[in-house]
């Protein structure tokens, strides 16, 4: 077993490097058709087509944003109301104690703040998950100029997978 390999000993992982985006997309489509294993694609820039092909549509980012926004809005109203409850008879500048319009501003800003925190937290969580999945194999070239594909498959299918990847135009294939 290679050093650093933390995956299932019953499966193999093949990492392929591609110079061309269309070669990678061809490889992904072929492997998908053959149900060759679990695919993780790498790209130096966001690519909508690749993302749609290799990842599922669900994301925690929107839900985290919604939860953060609701929490922020609630906190924006609850905090001043609770604070004013501490001094129920203290009237400042003749203004009503529980005036809604000024609190809308506070609630709006807190809503945006906590929504943003939720978005970033969900993004970081997704990155951590992705990191764990691709921990066995990555290549510095993926952030620079090359595309990549990690295929997790049964060990007997690894050789066939390598052939398919080479046929699709992979520059380099290695078992990791």
């Amino acid at each position: 077993m290679p050093e650093g390999w933390r995956g299932d000993p019953a499966s193999a992982a093949v990492l392929a490097l591609f110079e061309r985006r269309d070669s990678l997309l061809t490889a992904v489509r072929t492997l998908r058709t053959l149900d060759a294993g679990t695919l993780t694609a790498f790209a130096p820039a966001y690519d909508e087509e690749l993302v749609e092909l290799t990842t599922n549509g669900s994301s925690a980012v929107e839900i985290a944003a919604l939860v953060g926004a609701l929490a922020g809005c609630l906190a924006g109203f609850a905090l001043p109301f609770w604070m004013r409850g501490q001094w129920p008879t203290l009237i400042v500048s003749g203004k009503p104690l529980m005036s809604i319009p000024p609190l809308v501003l506070v609630a709006f800003e807190l809503m945006l703040l906590l929504a943003s925190c939720g978005i970033v937290a969900a993004f970081l969580r997704r990155c951590a998950m992705s990191r764990r999945r691709s921990a066995v194999a990555s290549d510095p070239a993926f952030t620079d100029s090359r595309y990549g594909l990690l295929v997790r498959c049964d060990p007997p299918r690894a050789a066939g997978t390598i052939d398919l990847l080479r046929e699709a135009g992979a520059l380099e294939c290695r078992i990791v």
């Binding site: 993780t40 790498f42 690749l50 993302v51 990842t55 978005i119 970033v120 969900a122 997704r126 992705s130």
Partner: peptide
């Protein structure tokens, strides 16, 4: 690590 999953989360975020 530039995986497609990271790019998806990144773009949504």
């Amino acid at each position: 690590s530039a995986t497609a999953g990271e790019w998806r989360a990144y773009r949504k975020a």
